[in-house]
Design a protein around this nucleic acid. Structure first.
Length: 913
RNA sequence: GCGAGGGUAGCCAAGCCGGGAAACGGCGGCGGACUCAAGAUCCGCUCCUGUAGAGGUCCGAGGGUUCAAAUCCCUUCCCUCGCACCA
């Protein structure tokens, strides 16, 4: 416990146990459509860090808020429990990944419970348990049945010394020597520093590209997602609309430069190029192939120079466009012209078709290449119909325009030309290409879901039958390479099809497979015959509010969307998007820097909880900034939050002990009643504002409101003997507004107040106030107080005897109302035409002129009665501050010369020394 | 280069969508109350000028729209993030 604080540890333990006993976070299976609030489940490292605390405080606070609002809430938690770190830890510690992971999970669950996160632990999901990963395997089968699984060669990082595949994260070094254009980066195995090589292995893929179009298109519908994430997904999917155009490639017409080795077949047939600028095809002056294009590879086999280039010179990472002429010719399908064919490293096999035609006049990169190779530049697009073809010798003209020097197409706009050319060219067609690749899920690791496949010499790869799932992991063996490969007994099996001896697939699945559907498993975590209960999922999904780090903006969120769509198509899910609203929470930093172990600037949540308690940690984190913004951890801020909770506790306890703060001097009924009215209004205002802010997840502003309310209550009590009913209501409301964020201490104080039942299950206070009116009242009070201060300051009144606040006469309010509604040119005339105004003579004329002058800036104010009432109720604030008698007078009760300066929203003030 | 999000008083941070108050709140600093004192708590002040609520300047910079701009539009600079030899 902290000095000067409260015994947070006792309070927090006590209520955690009480809530647990009462199962307050349990979501029964029979609710129809709970509000589904979800934080991205963590990798169980064993230690919760501040990022977790922030993430899960956000979901917890929102879940608690919705629950108090009367919603059924689903707020589960689970563990992304497979993955490399466990395997490495097990190797280092000579244990096994399972025991290590289970231990970490237990530690982290304890830490979460200590934070007071309210989860339905009966729905806990742990991906490394067979009862979970069985469904990964089952889904793999279903994907295969839907023709969404493919096995093909893929390049992987390979360490020849460890004889294993390395994940990208396990490849280190990577610093390419400056100035080097060959060889690329030096990549080393993280374990043994052996240079990593690339190797082609047969890998399993999920065909996410089948859904590229829908994944891309539906981003527009994700209105509840941040733009940044949507944009990142768009970039990742990377749609390009263009045309595919076939070029005849051959070693025709003596174009060979003699480098060719032999005279074998020189026909390469049609090679498709992809372009988004078909309008520039008349300006094509070369044709280029990616180094790993099939044609390039064929050439490399027979041509030493090409071989040399492909194997050693090509540097796709470098800035320089490098290439080598092949001696081949590609025939421009429009002009019949022969173009020299290059193999060039700036052509990427994964973009388009891995082949392109170059138009130096209209593409910067082609221009650079042409310059280097001494190729022609032929401009064929002019900026507009009247312009000449641009001079593209120096720089390419890359805008659309009007096509020139293009035969029958000349004169068309770029867009028209593209359309016409696509129609006309034989074999050409519109095509949309995506950057998105199929998802390779094979991992040569132990600690993952075994891919449910058996390799049979006769039948090839065969899916393990559904009845034999799960394929469980064998005991862990601490070996070099993949432990599954070493598990001979496990590996050897029989073919499900023909019964012959066969071997199990030893690859496991990418852990992103696990996380692509875990949110569905929470719906029916125990279900034994399906991954999820479809009917219930249709009621409960989509996740209403998903919260997690921006680092998952692409992979996890994209894979999850993909799974959801596949399951919608094949398993009867109704919703095609899993996450309705997404919040990408910001980072908790220290002095502007990301907390990290290597920097040694990590603030441990456990230490904070110990010193200040979970409530303080949660309150500080939530009030520091909007949830999506980064913010700095601040010891000062933590102390301030702690001091606030301590004050709150003292305030409630004093009141509950029967001390209502009697001050005989001010206990007279009138002041007390007015003050109570003020406090009453502030309570309702706080509810109105905070509710709206909680709804918007802007906890920081909601909490400000709650803190202000507590401040008001304390000032009230300090000033006078409080109206117990009003004061208690204020405390109860403050506790409710704070309960989602600081649940333990609020629950404790709820009990101190003698309330029945749990605060966690209490009803959220009704919104009775109109926020706009409440804010207008606050403005009036604040402005009036400021005016009093300013007058006494400027006039040098140190110790005022009496302050008169004179409320504006009704007729001025009426005049303002008329002015706001009037569209007459002569406002003065209109106002003075009204008898009830005009009879106030000169004062009326003056005010009318003022209104006319400021006409455009006039704003609605509180009605006269409300103004008077508000000021009377707030009079105590002035009295308290200036220690002077305060009278709130109606205009007719005050001297004429004072009252006349009053205006709606701005009472006259007279200070007597 | 393309895209997204930011730049608000000493610091952090509201306000910007739906234009109208030198611009909420917190921290730090200053003054005061309470106290023997410190801490805690409470009341103010914290852009400049001003002996009755005023005037001036101000929200990265520069333009514009408007009776009126931190807020809308354009240009520009800086920061953060994502994508990028993408055909």
């Amino acid at each position: 416990m902290h000095d000067d604080g409260y015994d947070h540890t006792t309070v927090e333990r006590r209520w955690q146990a009480a809530w647990d006993d009462a199962s307050v976070y349990r979501t029964p299976d029979d609710v129809s459509d709970p509000t589904y609030v979800l934080g991205m489940y963590p990798y169980p490292s064993g230690e919760m860090h501040m990022g977790h605390v922030r993430n899960y405080t956000i979901t917890d606070a929102y879940a608690r808020f919705r629950r108090m609002c009367g919603d059924d809430v689903l707020h589960p938690m689970g563990w992304d429990a497979f993955g490399l770190p466990a395997e490495n830890a097990a190797k280092e510690r000579d244990t096994n990944p399972r025991d290590w992971t289970v231990d970490c999970i237990d530690r982290m669950r304890d830490q979460m419970e200590a934070m007071g996160f309210g989860y339905d632990w009966k729905r806990e999901v742990t991906t490394c348990r067979p009862r979970y990963y069985k469904w990964n395997q089952w889904l793999f089968r279903r994907f295969a049945e839907a023709d969404l699984v493919e096995r093909r060669d893929a390049e992987v990082n390979w360490c020849p010394s460890c004889e294993t595949v390395l994940a990208d994260e396990q490849v280190e070094g990577g610093e390419s020597p400056e100035g080097s254009h060959e060889g690329g980066a030096v990549e080393l195995c993280w374990r043994c520093d052996t240079p990593v090589t690339e190797r082609e292995l047969e890998q399993w893929f999920l065909k996410i590209t089948e859904y590229a179009d829908e994944l891309r298109g539906d981003i527009d519908e994700l209105a509840g997602w941040p733009d940044s994430v949507r944009q990142m997904q768009r970039n990742w999917i990377g749609r390009q609309e263009g045309s595919r155009v076939p070029f005849e490639v051959s070693a025709a017409s003596g174009a060979s430069d003699g480098r060719g080795e032999g005279a074998e077949s020189r026909e390469f047939g049609e090679v498709d190029a992809f372009t988004t600028r078909l309008d520039t095809i008349h300006g094509a002056t070369f044709f280029a192939l990616a180094p790993d294009h099939p044609v390039s590879e064929r050439l490399a086999e027979e041509n030493d120079a090409v071989h040399e280039f492909v194997r050693h010179e090509a540097d796709p990472e470098g800035d320089e466009p490098n290439g080598i002429e092949t001696g081949l010719t590609a025939t421009n399908p429009v002009t019949g012209e022969g173009l020299p064919v290059f193999v060039a490293d700036f052509v990427l096999s994964e973009v388009g078709t891995g082949a392109l035609y170059g138009v130096p006049a209209h593409d910067d990169r082609d221009h650079a290449f042409a310059e280097k190779m001494g190729l022609d530049v032929e401009p064929v697009v002019a900026p507009d119909a009247d312009a000449d073809a641009p001079d593209a010798e120096e720089t390419a003209y890359t805008e659309d325009g009007v096509v020139v020097n293009s035969g029958e197409y000349s004169g068309l706009t770029s867009a028209e030309a593209r359309e016409r050319l696509t129609e006309t060219i034989d074999g050409a067609d519109v095509e949309t290409v995506y950057r998105l690749r199929d998802w390779g899920i094979s991992r040569q690791r132990y600690w993952g879901t075994p891919i449910p496949v058996v390799h049979c010499d006769d039948c090839g790869p065969v899916l393990v039958p559904e009845a034999e799932l799960p394929v469980e992991l064998p005991e862990f063996k601490n070996v070099t390479g993949n432990p599954l490969d070493a598990a001979e007994e496990w590996k050897s099996t029989t073919c499900p099809d023909c019964g012959a001896d066969a071997e199990r697939e030893t690859d496991t699945m990418d852990t992103f497979v696990d996380s692509s559907w875990y949110f569905l498993r929470y719906v029916s975590p125990e279900l034994a015959d399906a991954p999820f209960d479809v009917d219930r999922a249709n009621g409960w999904m989509p996740v209403d509010q998903y919260v997690g780090g921006i680092e998952h903006a692409v992979m996890h969120l994209l894979y999850s969307r993909f799974f959801q769509k596949v399951l919608a198509d094949h398993e009867g899910l109704q919703h095609r998007e899993p996450f309705e609203n997404l919040l990408a929470q910001g980072m908790v930093q220290l002095e502007g820097e990301k907390m990290s172990k290597s920097k040694g600037n990590v603030v441990s949540p456990q230490a904070i909880v110990e010193e200040y308690g979970a409530d303080t940690a949660r309150l500080f984190i939530m009030q520091a900034a909007q949830p999506e913004r980064d913010f700095d951890w601040s010891e000062e801020g933590v102390r301030s939050a702690y001091a606030f909770l301590t004050r709150l506790k003292a305030t409630v306890e004093t009141f509950a002990a029967g001390d209502v703060g009697a001050d005989p001097r001010r206990a007279d009924g009138d002041v007390a009643a007015g003050t109570a009215a003020y406090v009453d209004g502030e309570i309702d205002a706080a509810v109105a504002v905070a509710t709206e802010e909680y709804d918007d997840l802007t906890f920081n502003t909601a909490l400000r409101e709650a803190r202000d309310l507590v401040g008001t209550l304390r000032a009230y009590r300090e000033y006078t003997a409080v109206d117990p009913a009003v004061f208690e209501r204020g405390l109860a409301v403050a506790l409710k507004l704070l309960a989602p964020v600081a649940p333990h201490v609020c629950e404790e104080l709820w009990e101190t107040l003698g309330r029945e039942g749990f605060l966690v299950e209490a009803d959220w206070p009704d919104v009775t106030a109109d926020r706009e009116t409440a804010e207008r009242r606050r403005l009036l009070v604040e402005n009036t107080r400021e005016d009093v201060r300013e007058i006494s300051d400027v006039a040098g009144i140190d110790d005022p005897e009496r302050v008169d606040v004179v409320v504006t006469p009704d007729w001025k309010h009426e005049a303002l109302r008329v002015a706001l509604e009037s569209d007459a040119d002569n406002l003065v005339g209109e106002l003075m035409g009204r008898e009830d105004i005009q009879r106030h003579g000169e004062a009326a004329a003056d005010y009318a002129k003022d209104l006319q002058a400021e006409r455009e800036a006039l704003r609605k104010t509180l009605p006269p009665a409300a103004e008077h009432e508000t000021l009377r109720a707030a009079a105590w604030l002035i009295e308290r501050e200036f220690d002077a008698e305060v009278r709130v007078l109606r205009a007719e009760e005050a001297p004429e010369d004072v009252a006349t300066t009053a205006e709606p929203g701005r009472p006259a003030i007279d200070i007597q020394e």
